[in-house]
């Protein structure tokens, strides 16, 4: 256990001091603020609709940027761009060390492959957790400020709703980060892992869901895909990504089915990664 903790501490240091980690985290926060607050609030103030808010009444636009909607706001972007960004992070965390030769250096220093892999996965999990917490803090701060500016009552979400939102955002982002980590481990290079991961998460799953309406077996397959599960889990929260639907948010699966599927990925993806790391030659 102490070797795993030591490995996690070591890995956290290298991840914390890596500008890529901060850039990806910041990109997620910027996108969340833009799509969760800026566009909706500007549309509300100007009385005009954007591509995302067309046809939505002003009152709904205002509601979407108030504190009570924070659970929906922080989860709405997770199935699509939030997940994609975390997938990139996971792939880079796992794969960059192969190109730099730093995994080789680390493994010749004494820790077991198991401890190194688990420590690395734990530090990735910590980064995702901090990203979600930063999202919550930022969302609460912005929405409270907007409520005060608009002179409406500051009604915070219930602890249960907020907890559910945080939990769902964490699970979805973690699943995609782990997906990226496994890809990075298998492919041993960040470029290919990031490329394939993005194509899968942004293109292939959407195409399969389209084909699923024509072929029954493809539709069955889509019910166990990570994107469908993540989108449905977020959809079960009523996170329409603001007033009128967000890319990647689905209602294809029940909340329970989606949760079980996402949890299965969160367990299986790191297990596979650890298995590969333990078994494979580092040549």
């Amino acid at each position: 256990m102490t070797t795993i903790v030591a490995s996690a501490r070591a890995d956290l240091l290298r991840v914390r001091k890596w500008s890529a980690t901060w850039v990806i985290g910041a990109a997620w926060l910027v996108l969340m603020v833009l799509f969760g607050y800026v566009f909706n609030y500007v549309a509300y103030r100007s009385g005009s609709g954007s591509f995302a808010t067309e046809g939505v009444v002003g009152e709904a636009l205002l509601r979407s940027v108030l504190p009570a909607n924070v659970p929906q706001t922080i989860t709405a972007g997770t199935p699509m761009f939030g997940g994609a960004l975390m997938m990139v992070l996971g792939a880079m965390v796992a794969a960059s060390g192969y190109g730099w030769g730093s995994w080789k250096t680390i493994l010749t220093q004494g820790p077991s492959r198991f401890a190194v892999a688990v420590g690395s996965l734990l530090s990735l999990t910590a980064v995702v957790a901090v990203t979600v917490l930063a999202s919550v803090v930022m969302a609460l701060g912005i929405s409270t400020s907007l409520a005060l500016v608009e002179g409406v009552d500051v009604v915070l979400p219930s602890a249960a709703d907020l907890g559910q939102g945080v939990g769902i955002a964490f699970l979805v982002l973690l699943m995609w980060a782990l997906f990226g980590y496994l890809l990075g481990t298998l492919l041993r290079g960040p470029a290919l892992a990031v490329g394939l991961g993005l194509v899968w998460s942004l293109v292939v799953e959407n195409l399969l869901r389209g084909v699923g309406s024509l072929l029954g077996w493809v539709e069955t397959l889509t019910t166990v895909l990570p994107g469908t599960a993540a989108g449905s889990l977020v959809g079960s929260l009523g996170a329409s990504g603001g007033p009128e639907g967000a890319p990647g948010v689905l209602t294809a699966l029940s909340g329970t089915h989606a949760l079980v599927t996402v949890l299965a990925y969160v367990v299986l993806l790191p297990l596979l990664a650890v298995l590969v790391i333990r078994r494979r030659d580092l040549a």
Binding site: A6, K17, I106, T108, Q109, G110
Partner: peptide
């Protein structure tokens, strides 16, 4: 391996970290 020190096929380190931080990472592992 924790009783062995090794430099095999060139030095492999995180390029963005300082030399010292790279060693601190390794020291933490050990």
């Amino acid at each position: 391996t924790e009783r062995v020190g090794a430099l095999v096929e060139g030095p492999g380190f995180m390029p963005y970290l300082s030399g010292r931080d790279n060693l601190v990472v390794l020291a933490r592992y050990r």
